[in-house]
């Protein structure tokens, strides 16, 4: 057996990854360089959906004592990810269930999925941007949302408006103010990969444009330009591409700093169905 040593191959994903599926169909996926953006939102161990659920539960059950910054109780820094009384996730769940007898930390009858959500959020809390954000007047923000800001031309809130962009009915309870601000100022930089605009060409030449909802090796799920939920078999597509640029214009194109602060205050009032 020949003995040889080779050096490592590619170390970075290039801007274009072209994948040849076994069906012989070329799948073209355009993606940007995985550059590191300002601030990080989530550590890999935890599911995005769990974290969002956790943000919600935290807002409802913990905020009043521990505050958004996680350091409002003396001697406790929830953002540190390292706790005096719990080390593993299991212990942390146990602690949240039992509370801390003899202190203000209450017991709670959380379900397993609630505990998973809370722990996912606590463990990733320090990645979530909590930097101070100027908040304005939410009533003015509400007017800007449908008026000058033109947000309502793309976004749906509480059953009103188009569905092609994400429904923002509960955005105020699953995102922090700082994260929302970044979404408004830099939509492309803060776009979740799953939300990327996709364009699929069927074998008959029909082009379907939409927002990606889910994707796996063989299929892709989108909401198309006509607000239909569509599941496409990749082997039946002539071409498929996902863009890294958000269709949403930066809020600064239409609004000034004060107006953006008003809009943020409004977005934070959107808590979904309680």
């Amino acid at each position: 057996m020949p003995k040889h040593t080779q050096f490592a191959r590619i170390t970075h994903t290039g801007p274009v990854i072209s994948v040849l599926l076994t069906g012989g169909i070329a799948l073209l996926i355009l993606i940007g360089n995985p550059s590191r953006a300002v601030g990080q939102d989530h550590v890999g161990q935890y599911e995005q959906a769990d974290i969002e659920f956790g943000v919600r539960l935290y807002g409802a059950n913990c905020l009043r004592c521990h505050a958004e910054t996680g350091d409002a109780v003396a001697g406790v820094d929830l953002r540190s990810g390292a706790y005096n009384r719990a080390s593993s996730d299991r212990e942390l769940m146990e602690l949240l269930r039992t509370g801390i007898p003899g202190t203000a930390m209450p017991p709670n009858n959380f379900s397993d999925s609630e505990l998973t959500g809370l722990v996912s959020y606590l463990r990733t809390m320090r990645d979530i941007d909590l930097s101070a954000v100027a908040l304005g007047d939410n009533t003015r923000g509400s007017v800007l949302f449908t008026g000058k800001g033109a947000c309502a031309t793309c976004h749906r809130v509480n059953g009103l408006g188009p569905r092609t962009a994400p429904d923002l009915s509960d955005i105020g309870s699953i995102r922090t103010a700082a994260t929302l601000q970044r979404s408004l100022l830099d939509p492309t930089g803060s776009m979740l990969p799953i939300n990327r605009p996709v364009s699929a060409t069927l074998s008959d030449g029909t082009v379907i444009n939409g927002r990606r909802l889910n994707e796996d090796t063989y299929t892709i799920q989108v909401i198309d330009q006509d607000e239909r939920l569509r599941s496409l078999d990749k082997s039946e597509l002539r071409e498929l591409s996902a863009l890294t640029e958000s269709p949403m214009p930066p809020a600064t194109e239409l609004l000034d700093t004060e107006e953006i602060a008003d809009l943020l205050a409004y977005l934070l009032t959107l808590k979904g169905l309680e």
Binding site: A37, H42, A49, P193, R212, N214
Partner: peptide
């Protein structure tokens, strides 16, 4: 120490668990 997410902007990276939606897609490998 800890492993941090190389992607900003709320992108997720695969960990030990997985829900029904692939939230990282091609962005994270």
């Amino acid at each position: 120490g800890r492993p941090a997410n190389p992607f900003g902007a709320g992108a997720n990276v695969p960990g030990l668990r997985r829900g029904h939606v692939n939230t990282w897609t091609e962005a994270a490998g």
